[in-house]
Structures are given as C-alpha cells and as structure tokens.
Amino acid sequence: MTRFWVLATALVLLLAACGGDGDSGDGESGGSVRVALGDIESVETLALFIALDRVRDRGVEVDLTELADEDLANQAVVSGQADVGLGAPYALIEGSDAPLRIFCQLQAARFFVVADKADYPDWQSMNGETFTVHSRGSTTEALAKLVEQEEGIEFGEISYVEGSEVRATALLRGNVKATVLDIPNRNYVMAESPGTFHELPTPETKASDEVIFGNTEWLAANQETVQVLLEEILTVWRSMVDDPAFVQEERERLDLLNDLPAELEEQLLPYYEQGAEEGLFTQDCGSEAAARDDFEFYHEAGQLSGEPGELRVEDFWDLGPAQAAEDALAESGG
C-alpha cells in the first residue's frame, strides 16, 4: 500500500512538472490579467493586441474584454470584473476615491484640427464661430479651451459630436466646418476632398489620451504580472517607433486582425508611421511630467475639479511598476 502511495505521489509530481512546462511555454510568469478595453478591434488597437499576445507568450493568461466605451472599462475595473483598464479615469479617481492607479501612459494626446480652408484660413477667423468637439468634458473640449487661451479668441459655440469618424463624415458633408479628428480620419478627410480642408496648428502637450490603470490591490498582489505587461508594452511601443513596419510584421506573425478589410489594411502602416512621427506612442510610460500635464489638461476639460498645483501625483499614479519595467529592460538591453 505504501508503495502505491509513493508511486502515485511521484506520478502526480511528474505530471505537475510536465504541466508547468507546457503551460508557460518559453515564458516565466504564469500569472493572469483581465483587461477591459473601452474600444473595439481596429488599426489603432492593434499595437496593444500585439503587446498582449507577447504577454501571453511569456506564460501570463490574458483575458481581454472589449466594451462599448471607456466609462464601462472604468466600471469593470472598479467592480473587480477586470484587473486593468484602458482610458483616462481621472474624474473617477478624484470624484469617487475609486481604488485605481494609473501605471503607464500609452498614448499622448495629439489632436488634428481640420477646418474648411476657404471659411477658416487661420484661428483668428474662427473667433465667434462654431467649433465641433467630441463631447462635454472631453480632452477635445480641453483643447478648444487651450486654443482660446493661446490664440486670444472665443468660439461662438462649442458643439458636440461623438466619434471622430462621425465628425469626419459631417465635415465632408458640410454639416460642420471645423473639428478635431484622429490620424485615420484626418487622412480620410484629406484624401476624400483634397484641397478643401487644411490643418490648424494645435498647442503642444504631454497630456495623456490613453493610460493603463489598475485596481490598487491587484497591482500590489501581482507585481510580476504587471512587470511582464509593461515590459511588453514598452518593447512594442519602442519597436514601432523605431520601425513602424514592426506592427505589420508582428500582425502577420501573430495572425492578428486577419479579417481587416483591404481599405483599412492600407491605413495600417501610414497610421503607425504618422503616429511615431507625431510622438503619439509614449516611450517611457509617461512619468511624473505626464501626470502633471494631465492635471492641467483634465482640469481644463472639467474632469478634475482640484487645482492642478494642489493635486498629488501619488493619488492618481503608481510610478513604481513603470520604473521597474524600464530598469529590467535596460538591464536586458531591451
């Protein structure tokens, strides 16, 4: 009988050892992370999908949920249905003391103001005119307020139209004359009606368009997983800035977004080339400077009610994980 138990124990240990090897592949972590993304699969989210696939390759189980908007992603993290989310949860952290901390800036806010060339040749001509942004309290509205301050003008009316693609269509149809667009829609408008529209210069800012944030308890309990996640995000973000074709190559290697329509596929490389050129993809997770810029910017947008100078970075950000990931990459020569 004793022999039976010894054999059985040995067998279980052997199977466990084999199982462990098989699960982690060539990786080293073995944790898991549930990611809430307030967006759908698209050209813009491809870089994140690549990073998450590489995290999977390192033995971390990744469960990605796509939600209709960023607010839902925030709620998913707050309620514990997701460990990390993507968005800009400043208002949620300030307004509800939600146990969330931002731990990496993924994308800096880069805006492209496209206006009818004949009607609005410069910002001064927009004094007293209607300017269209995403929604009340959005970063695009903060941009409108910054423009008013910097250019010494006052818009007649700020109108709200959600979705860059909707504003692009409205611009082409003549429903709006000047609005804020993202890179793909700026390219689309310029290609559809060459010579009709032009870009107006926008203020420089390091503020975040998209950050990754997590539940504080989860961040503390899963430091190794967070490190793997950030190392892969930084590696992908740096690789695509060095060579935007990296995204294309990784997409083919990992077989991602394989049902992307041909016309969107054509936008893929230009998007990452222009994004890299415009400084869209943050190379160091943002650091304290980005947090301070965010305080100014989101205060202007109405998302933060506290005075920017009085807000404390540690109440919104956890800078430790990004530093640890950077150090690890520097050590490994990444």
């Binding site: 607010d71 208002a91 949620l92 300030e94 307004g95 509800s96 939600a98 929604s135 009340r136 309290g137 959005s138 109108s159 709200y160 139209v161 959600e162 109405g302 998302q303």
Partner: peptide
C-alpha cells in the same frame, strides 16, 4: 449627438 437630457447622462458619467 449628446444634447439635452441625454448629454446630462453622458457628461455626468464621464466626470464621475
């Protein structure tokens, strides 16, 4: 487009 009472819901949700 967020206007009227629909805008109130969208806006107050976005600023928590």
């Amino acid at each position: 487009t967020p206007t009227g009472v629909g805008d109130l819901i969208t806006f107050y949700r976005s600023v928590a």
